[in-house]
């Protein structure tokens, strides 16, 4: 400041030096000199950057929502992982085992004769093919129900032959009734319900989700820029941006850990129980995936807070000089 004064006195002053108290938000009591380096304005009144900060947090949350949906619901690999994690095949096999054991008890066959016609691998592979077809848009593989019926029927006839049971027409009719029940149990407990409907919904989703993500990202970027601009000082601007990202981090954590139990999604009771288990695991996976945006927002928030503190201390040192 002393140097600056000396520079002024070496020239013929064109206008008298003035010390003017500038009324501003900070009311720092700074002084104004047209030719001098000036402090930037403090910014708009707090409600405006605060409102923009809130709006930015909403847009960031929507962006997190869209991206999470894109990487979960929009991803066949995610559904395959959740299907494996839910032990869908094991649950379906357990349901089938209960039924087949009862049918065996009612029909005179050892339960192994019926249970051996179904394997965990077959159930797994059928689900994997269905999920792959749903997401690829290909035709959903049709189950060969006749082949399922035939495998049970023939296995029972073979057993009757092994024990030298006299097979009459009445016996064949009785065995056919068992085979039909076994086939019906299989079709009820194994498979993806409404696969075609889901396929068309996912097709529409996959077409719009990335466009929506891009649009929301642009809007969020504009909103964040305006927030920064309205705040005035860079340090203050970073602070208001941090408010947005912290809010989004908190909201993401709420999505991840609170909403699933709050909506009672851990108590889904649809039939069959194997599909209920799969649906529960799938929905839990979607909600838990919000941990990733929460972590990203938390890291960004930390960086913004640190930068804000660093910039503010630099500004203060600049004031002091």
């Amino acid at each position: 400041m002393a140097r600056h004064f000396n520079e002024e006195t070496t020239r013929a002053p064109k206008t008298p030096r003035r010390i003017q108290v500038v009324e501003d938000d900070l009311n720092d009591g700074g002084y104004y000199e047209p030719a001098a380096r000036t402090e930037p304005r403090e910014g708009a009144a707090a409600p405006w950057p605060l409102a923009m900060s809130f709006f930015s947090s909403v847009l960031l949350m929507v962006l997190a929502l869209v991206l999470t949906v894109a990487f979960t619901v929009g991803s066949g690999a995610f559904m395959q992982r959740m299907e494996k994690k839910s032990d869908y095949a094991e649950e379906a096999y357990a349901l089938l085992s209960i039924n087949y054991e009862s049918y065996a008890g009612a029909s005179g066959f050892p339960k192994e004769v019926l249970l051996d016609q179904v394997t965990l691998d077959a159930i797994d592979s059928e689900m994997a093919e269905s999920i792959a077809a749903i997401y690829s848009g290909e035709e959903i593989p049709e189950r060969d129900v006749q082949a399922i019926y035939d495998s049970f029927y023939n296995a029972m006839l073979d057993y009757a032959g092994e024990i030298n049971y006299k097979v009459t027409d009445d016996t064949k009719e009785a065995i056919a009734a068992v085979a039909e029940s076994c086939r019906n149990s299989y079709t009820n407990f194994v498979g993806f319900p409404a696969a075609k409907t889901l396929q068309s919904m996912l097709d529409r989703l996959q077409r719009v989700i990335w466009i929506a993500a891009a649009v929301v990202a642009v809007l969020a970027a504009i909103s964040l820029f305006l927030t920064f601009l309205l705040a005035g000082k860079k340090a203050t601007g970073l602070r208001f941006l941090a408010f947005s990202t912290i809010t989004s981090a908190v909201a993401s954590l709420i999505f991840a850990f609170v909403l699933f139990p709050a909506f009672g999604l851990g108590r889904i009771t649809i039939n069959p129980a194997s599909m209920a288990a799969f649906l529960q695991t799938y929905l839990r996976g979607i909600f838990t995936a919000f941990v990733y945006p929460a972590i990203a927002f938390a890291i960004i928030s930390a960086i913004l807070i640190v930068l804000s503190i660093v910039l503010r201390s630099k500004e203060r040192r600049g004031h002091a000089r």
Partner: peptide
């Protein structure tokens, strides 16, 4: 403010 403002925003959004 790093606690109060995001908490208020989150409540309002909720």
């Amino acid at each position: 403010a790093f606690v109060a403002v995001p908490a208020a925003f989150a409540l309002l959004t909720a």
